[in-house]
C-alpha cells in the first residue's frame, strides 16, 4: 500500500538560483548553480536548506510553516510561480531554475517583501468587516446566527494565503504598480459576501471601481492558473466587475 517505486540511483540536481543582495554594494543580479544529490521525498524547502547549510550560508529565502499553509515561500520555479515548500523535486526535471517573485520589493536572493505589499493592499482596500458599533458587540450573549452554507462560502474565499503568486502571474500587476490584483479583488468579494460587513456596492466601487481595481484586469487568468489554493479567482473578478459596472453606471 502506498509504495512508491524506489529509484535506482539518486539524481544529481542542478539548482540554478537568481541571486542578488541589495544590501551589498558589490552585488549584481546573477545566476548561480548548485549541485546536490536528490533525496527521497525531497522538497525545495529541504533542497534550499541543504544548499544554505552545506554550500552557501548567505543564501536568502523565506520559509515559515513549510506545509503550504502560510504563503511565505512563493517563488518562480522553472518559470512558474508556486510554493516552494510543497514542491517535490521528483516532479521537476534535473535542472531547476529558481527566481524571486517579480512585482515585489526584493529583500535578497529568493526573499521578497510580500508582507509590505499585502499590508498596503489591506490598508487600501480596508479588508476588514465594517460594522458600526462593532466595539459594542455583546460578547456575553449568543452570537449572531449565520446560514451554514454562507459561512462555508465565505471561508472558500478566505482560504487565500497572500502568497503573491497571483500577482507574479498577472500581466496588469507587472504594468501597474497600484493594481490590487486577484488577491485584493478576491478579498473585496469575500467582504461583499459577508453580511456582517455593512459596506454597500457604492462603497466597494470607491475602492476598486477603476483601473487599479477591477477594471484593470485583462482576464489573462494567470492568477487562477497559479493560485496554490485553487481559488475561483477568475469567476470572482468577473462577477465583481459586473457588479461594479452596474454600480458605476
Amino acid at each position: 500500500m502506498n509504495q512508491i517505486a524506489v529509484k535506482e540511483a539518486p539524481r544529481s540536481l542542478k539548482i540554478r538560483i537568481l541571486r542578488h543582495n541589495p544590501h551589498d554594494p558589490g552585488s549584481s543580479p546573477h545566476l548561480q548553480t548548485f549541485e546536490l544529490e536528490e533525496a527521497e521525498s525531497m522538497t525545495l524547502f529541504i533542497a534550499l536548506n541543504e544548499i544554505r547549510q552545506t554550500m552557501d550560508p548567505s543564501l536568502q529565502f523565506d520559509f515559515v510553516c513549510r506545509a503550504g499553509i502560510c504563503g511565505s515561500c512563493g517563488m518562480i520555479i522553472n518559470g512558474r510561480p508556486g510554493l516552494a515548500c510543497r514542491t517535490l523535486t521528483r516532479n521537476l526535471p534535473e535542472c531547476i531554475t529558481l527566481a524571486p517573485l517579480p512585482a515585489f520589493e526584493l529583500i535578497g536572493d529568493l526573499s521578497v517583501n510580500t508582507g509590505k505589499w499585502m499590508r498596503g493592499m489591506s490598508e487600501h482596500l480596508e479588508t476588514w468587516v465594517h460594522q458600526r458599533d462593532q466595539d459594542k458587540a455583546d460578547i456575553d450573549r449568543l452570537e449572531e446566527r449565520m446560514e451554514p452554507d454562507l459561512a462555508e462560502k465565505i471561508y472558500e474565499l478566505e482560504r487565500c494565503i497572500e502568497c503573491g503568486c497571483c500577482i507574479a502571474a498577472c500581466g496588469t500587476a507587472r504594468m501597474r504598480e497600484d493594481f490590487v490584483g486577484a488577491v485584493g479583488l478576491n478579498q473585496i468579494t469575500r467582504f461583499r459576501l459577508d453580511p456582517r460587513d455593512e459596506r454597500s456596492d457604492a462603497d466597494f466601487y470607491s475602492l476598486v471601481g477603476d483601473e487599479s481595481g477591477v477594471f484593470g484586469c485583462m482576464t489573462l487568468l494567470g492568477c487562477e492558473d497559479y493560485c496554490p489554493k485553487d481559488l475561483p479567482l477568475a469567476a470572482q473578478i468577473a462577477f465583481l466587475r459586473r457588479r461594479m459596472a452596474a454600480t458605476g453606471s
Binding site: 476588514w128 468587516v129 450573549r141 452570537e143 449565520m146 446560514e147 462555508e152 471561508y155 478566505e158 456582517r196
Partner: peptide
C-alpha cells in the same frame, strides 16, 4: 469566540 464571530471569522455553523 463570539468576539471573533463579530469581527468576521466564518465559523462553521
Amino acid at each position: 469566540i463570539r468576539e471573533l464571530a463579530a469581527w468576521g471569522v466564518p465559523w462553521n455553523r
